[in-house]
Computed example of a mutant assay.
Amino acid sequence: MTPEWMFSLASFTAMAGWILLAAGVALNNALLRDLVAGRIVPALLAAAYAGLITLFWAGSAGGFDSLDNVARLFANPWLLLAGWIHYLAFDLAIGAIIARRTFDEGLPRLALIPILPLTFLFGPVGWLAFEMLRALARKSRSTATA
């Protein structure tokens, strides 16, 4: 098993999770949206991350105390892969939370069309867009009730 092979497997797994999340949103299927895409697939990715950290962290050069040390840490392809899987797992988990809250809070489902791809591609930007949508919805509701 090579880092490149594991990169492909992890990326495929995350993409499958995003497709299942989109299907869960489109079909209003909480099982797909919340359990499979929101918990099971991120848990699989998290397990792979934990395994990589366990196997390759000890004795590696670098750390988190400076940008230069982060670059040294990620010079190890196995730890770079772990970092990539970290992003994949968290972005999918956040995307599933965004989708669930959209339904739970009665926000417009159409807003997920730009927000979920933003979360998939640029994690925090998608989350920020969602938080802005929530703020606008709260303001709109408070204005409507006044």
Rank of each mutant, 00 (worst) to 15 (best):
D68Q: 15
A48P: 05
G106A: 09
L80M: 13
P108N: 11
E105A: 09
I97T: 14
F74Q: 06
P77N: 04
A48E: 10
N69M: 11
L67N: 11
A58T: 15
L45G: 00
L88Q: 03
W57A: 15
L52Y: 00
Y49V: 05
F64V: 10
A61D: 06
L92E: 03
I85Q: 01
I85A: 01
L81Y: 00
G83Q: 00
D65N: 14
A99E: 01
D68R: 12
L81E: 04
S60A: 12
G106L: 05
A93P: 09
R72H: 05
I94S: 09
F64D: 09
N69V: 08
R109N: 11
D104F: 04
I94N: 09
T54V: 10
L81N: 01
A43R: 13
R100G: 07
V70T: 11
P42F: 07
W84D: 05
V70G: 06
P77W: 03
P108H: 08
F74M: 07
T54R: 14
I53K: 12
D68Y: 08
I94R: 10
A47N: 13
L107H: 02
G106F: 04
D65W: 10
F90A: 10
L92P: 05
I98G: 00
L81P: 05
A99I: 04
A71V: 11
G83T: 01
I53V: 15
P77V: 05
L44S: 11
I94E: 07
A71D: 08
G62E: 00
A58M: 12
R109W: 12
F90C: 09
S60C: 06
A48R: 07
I98S: 01
I40M: 14
L88E: 00
Y49Q: 09
L55C: 14
I53T: 14
F90S: 12
A48G: 09
I40K: 11
L79Y: 04
R109T: 15
D91F: 09
L73G: 04
D65R: 12
V41E: 06
G51W: 14
W57Q: 13
R101S: 07
G51C: 12
T102R: 00
V41C: 06
A82N: 04
A48Y: 08
Y49P: 04
T102V: 08
F64L: 13
L52N: 01
P42K: 05
I98H: 01
A99C: 08
Y87P: 02
N69K: 15
A99W: 03
A43F: 12
R101W: 05
N69C: 09
L67I: 14
L80G: 03
